[in-house]
Design a protein around this nucleic acid. Structure first.
Lengths: 208, 208
DNA sequence: AACTATTTTAAACACTTGTTTAAAACACAT
DNA sequence: ATGTGTTTTAAACAAGTGTTTAAAATAGTT
């Protein structure tokens, strides 16, 4: 047979789109199969059930998520520069995949949802050596002493929330898509300034 | 008839719990009616449909959300103190209603979802005079000059995300409920320090 | 007690859900 | 062309969905 895009991948692609947009509970098997342009039964022929298909999609989404971090952490830069580049990349990445954070958070909260071990993601990030690098910088007084969770939260909060809450913010502030996108660029700069100033309090950074 | 808790309220209470925990798509009418301890038909007898019931619950949730802000903004405090108190209160409020932010954001993203006018919430907040107060403080050089959206985002991001992403963060960092709660208190302090230092850059605040 | 209006229920409606079955279409070797 | 294994489909399955209907239970009035 041989095709440029195999059926299995067509399903995965469609499932990813539909799951991300509507969540596990918000869509049906038929909706996915229709998006993939085929019969319902095929979805269960390749993946045993809707749940199993979902697990695969979710796992891949988490993978993407972490991978996007790794490229920066593993780079040959000062820790402050890594921070700047990471924020830059995170805004760029999330602008391309805006549903990803809400998707992951929502499905993590689902009771029957993904029962995979998530600590592997932590280990993957840890293997980049970024945490050791932080500890060293903190010991040398180059970096503010906060624990890893707080550090993670500070970065994730300020990068992800502005993307996640887009519709809410546009609704509240009455902004068009273009206006919000423009403001997002300004906000990214504010976030970078704030985080770098807070985390790396040097004489230069403390200037107003 | 007269009862201590009217049927209508029993439904609303049950609906709020179930909707918040599972979302609109994630639950059924029967599930709500069962949680309220009554027949399915009663839900549609008091509220015409599942959608209409949802709209009411969602509207009330947004109301709660905004009201929790107003009490602080309207208080008689310096703007820097308002900020500190607001963060304190927001962490406290969200710890009691952890599903609220994800619920609002998720349902704002739903296509068929709540088509209400959200600008009224902005006006409600604006009526507290907080925005004018900010503008004045900025004009006097007491506060960093950033636009309202960016200000909103900075605060909301750092207050809401740590609650929203609780399960994700616990999973990644391998933390128990108690551990995370404890860390949340530390993080709240970090967030307060960071935001106040960034937004009100005075000589005292700039100290490490 | 008998009538009326409201509140609650069981049952049914038509439709969608996830999943399975059995037959059809297809590819490919001989 | 025939046979074989894989891929795809239409059809059906039982269970669950939102909603409606008509009857039962209840409350309130006379």
């Amino acid at each position: 047979m041989k095709k440029d895009v195999t059926t299995e991948e067509k399903i995965k692609e469609a499932a990813r789109e539909v799951f991300m947009a509507k969540g596990f509970a918000g869509c049906s098997s038929r909706e996915i199969s229709k998006a993939a342009g085929m019969n319902v039964a095929l979805v269960n022929y390749y993946f045993r059930s809707k749940s199993q298909l979902f697990q695969i999609i979710f796992q891949a989404a988490m993978e993407d998520f972490v991978t996007s971090m790794m490229t920066v952490f593993s780079s040959d830069q000062s820790i402050e520069n890594k921070m700047r580049i990471f924020i830059e990349r995170e805004f760029e990445f999330l602008s391309k995949h805006p549903e990803l954070p809400v998707f992951i958070i929502t499905e993590m909260n689902r009771e029957e949802g993904c029962s995979i071990d998530h600590s592997c993601f932590f280990e993957k990030i840890a293997s980049s050596g970024i945490f050791n690098e932080c500890a060293q910088a903190q010991a040398e007084g180059k970096m503010r002493k906060i624990n890893i969770l707080s550090l993670t939260l500070l970065i994730m909060s300020n990068c992800q929330y502005p993307i996640m809450a887009r519709n809410l913010m546009q609704g509240i502030h009455g902004l068009s898509d273009e206006e919000y996108s423009a403001n997002l660029i300004l906000h990214k700069q504010n976030v970078t300034d704030m985080l770098v100033t807070y985390l790396f309090p040097t004489q230069t950074n403390n200037k107003i």
